[in-house]
Design a protein around this nucleic acid. Structure first.
Lengths: 143, 143
DNA sequence: TTGAAATTGATAACCCGTCTCAAAAAGAAT
DNA sequence: ATTCTTTTTGAGACGGGTTATCAATTTCAA
């Protein structure tokens, strides 16, 4: 039995609800995906290149998008590529980024997160994750 | 004299520092850019199609990227396109993004912005701009 | 005015991601 | 197990957005 039983169950439930089929490829890709915090389709393609049923790039894209619909993954456009984030992975933090020297300070703020939930539910959304980046000048660069 | 004198000055300073030249095209593009809150290269291309020195799409891309380096713009990858945000524009808005169907809802929340300021000043930062994206499922995709 | 260096515009090239379609696999009903 | 319908797969074609190429033009310092 896989160590990703819970997520596998979520996937199977989603498949059942949408007349989709459980395949060896989807199982393989989910296993590989859940080992990462985030990954691109291209990276996963190389990672799984030598697995038993050979996985086509199209299948990887399709499957990662399927995971997004099932709520297991989250697509994030980063530079030119799309990052697929593992939603089950917690420990999220936000960033203060100095535009002068590039310094990055991590922070967490519960009040902000609570307000985010409010905004989301007011719009009918259920938040899976978020990205908050504050850009500015640190005390040193301001002078 | 242009009404965007301050930004024009920032641009000229950046150009000077990097041995770049001030051209009619850069001036035109900056003027058009500053009138918007955010814009894509393609949109700007159509907007400026009939201006006096005809502007090539490549020039628009190059110039908007230049503005990013000068700190006047901020690139944001949105779906397949890149949005160039006007950093000087206040009343910044944030985004709720559905990971299922890609729907995007814009919102503004002063309380969140105030808390951001607090976090920043506690860390000695002066915020220039920020990016807040909430990812989740909209009401339709949740079912 | 001159000349070196940067810029421009047209378009080719590029990259990422999606679409197409015939062959294979899944899964329900025999 | 066998059949049959439906979905999935993989290879490659395709498409949209962005960047690279390069000859002609413009900038600007000397």
């Amino acid at each position: 039995m896989s160590k990703h039983a819970k997520e596998m169950e979520i996937l199977k439930e989603h498949l059942g609800k949408h007349q989709l089929k459980f395949t060896r490829q989807r199982e393989l890709i989910l296993d590989a995906f859940l080992k990462q915090e985030h990954i691109t389709a291209e990276e996963m393609y190389h990672q799984l290149a030598r697995k038993d049923p050979h996985l086509g790039l199209a299948t990887i894209y399709r499957t990662l998008n399927l995971f997004c619909e099932a709520g297991l993954a989250q697509a994030r456009h980063f530079g030119t590529q799309t990052q697929y984030d593992n939603v089950s992975h917690k420990g999220h933090h936000d960033h203060l980024i100095c535009t002068g020297c590039g310094k990055i300070v991590e922070f967490e703020n519960c009040d902000i997160e609570r307000l985010q939930e409010e905004v989301a539910s007011r719009n009918g959304f259920t938040i899976q994750t978020h990205r908050l980046e504050l850009y500015g000048l640190c005390s040193r660069c301001r002078h």
